[in-house]
Simulated scan of single mutants.
Amino acid sequence: MKHDIVLDSLPKLDDTYLLTDKQIQSYRQTGHIALRGVASPEEVDRYEPVIQTLVKEHNQHTRPVHERNTYGKAFIQVGNLWEMSEAAKRFVLARRFAKIAAELMGVDGVRIYHDQALFKEPGGGHTPWHQDQIYWPLDTMHTITMWMPLVPVSEEVGSMTFASATHRAGSLSKELISDESHRTFGSYIEAKTIETVNYGALSAGDATFHSGWTLHSAPGNPTDTMREVMTVIYFADGTRALEPDSNARRNDLNRWLPGVQPGELAASPLNPLVYKRN
């Protein structure tokens, strides 16, 4: 494929990023963490053009930002780039990233749920408060998302904002990402006086990790540059699929766990095992 001409020269990303006990405990306490230099600037420079090209090719938006609804204004969203390109596959399935996910969650192995490029355009809107796992038919508390900018993210744009320790409660509402979810969860955070954390400016290759149940949002993009972010969602090996209790989860079961029935192991061909201890 044209995206893979230089595949043999791309970094393999299969070495280990060392976590401290303090970092692991902090993540488990709060449900989120920022880690610096998960990928080096040189590594990101090699993969960014591949991901950017795929996003341009698969961008489904046909209207300018100001004519879209709240969800559409939030970002250009392209899923499972690893299916589209061997180069993107090397990045998404990287052992280095997967091992971090497993160690933060305290599990022996992790599988991919799916990846997503989330590019917030100049003038792009905020991402409303939400919980990711309301979409996922996964019978586990052990889910985690890596959110990695491929370009520097300035203080003006910022990273995501997390509501600390909300992952411990599990599902708080069935609200999908919307203006209503922003109002509902914003009121909940205020009423409970929950601490919120934004890690501010990030360099390309830094990454945040957050639990599937951690409430989070993101500010809009008031700058004239694209906020390019790549995400990878992991879940614990051995997890079983849930009976979908919403159309969103039914759609996710069909798309991201093809052929898997409720109660069966979540281990379709789209969910490769990307890290196993020992």
Rank of each mutant, 00 (worst) to 15 (best):
M148A: 06
L215P: 05
S178W: 04
W213H: 13
A266P: 07
L18W: 02
E103M: 11
Q261V: 01
E121I: 07
T30S: 15
W256G: 00
K56I: 00
L7K: 04
P222R: 12
G109H: 12
K192G: 00
R168D: 00
V153G: 02
T239C: 09
Q23D: 13
H216M: 06
V44T: 11
H66Y: 12
K89I: 00
P262S: 10
G123I: 04
R63N: 02
G220E: 05
G186F: 10
E264V: 09
R255E: 11
I33E: 11
I134A: 05
T214Y: 02
R63G: 00
M226S: 02
H61N: 10
H66I: 08
G186T: 05
D252E: 10
W82R: 12
A74G: 07
S246F: 09
T231S: 13
T166F: 05
I144V: 15
P64D: 12
A98Q: 11
G109C: 12
H182E: 09
R277P: 00
P11C: 10
I51L: 14
T145D: 01
S159A: 13
V50W: 03
P258Y: 03
I100M: 13
L176K: 03
L19N: 04
S164D: 14
W129V: 01
P11I: 10
G212E: 06
T145H: 07
E67W: 01
A165I: 00
P41Y: 11
P64Q: 06
A236T: 09
T145G: 05
D206C: 08
S181M: 01
D139C: 07
Q60I: 03
P41R: 06
V197C: 12
S85T: 01
H210K: 07
V151L: 10
N251G: 10
K192Q: 14
S246H: 08
E121C: 05
L54G: 02
A98H: 09
A267D: 14
L270F: 13
S246G: 05
R227L: 05
L257P: 06
L10Q: 11
F235E: 00
H58E: 12
R46N: 06
N80K: 14
T239L: 03
L265V: 12
K99M: 12
N254L: 15
A266N: 10
R95T: 14
A94N: 11
S268Y: 09
Y188F: 14
H126Q: 08
T223Q: 03
K120C: 05
N254H: 10
E180Q: 13
E155T: 11
V110G: 08
D15I: 00
W129T: 01
M141T: 13
V232C: 10
A102H: 10
T16C: 09
L118Y: 03
R95F: 02
R28I: 06
A267V: 04
K276L: 15
M84L: 15
Y27A: 11
E190M: 09
A236H: 06
Y17A: 06
L242F: 03
K12M: 02
A117K: 04
D139S: 12
D115R: 02
G106R: 08
N69C: 06
M105S: 01
E42N: 12
I51G: 01
K276P: 01
L242M: 15
R36C: 03
E264T: 05
L257N: 01
V38W: 05
T184F: 15
S211G: 08
N221F: 09
T30F: 14
A102I: 10
V274D: 10
S40F: 04
I112R: 07
T166N: 05
T70G: 02
D224A: 13
E86T: 00
Q29Y: 03
V274E: 11
P222G: 11
T225Y: 13
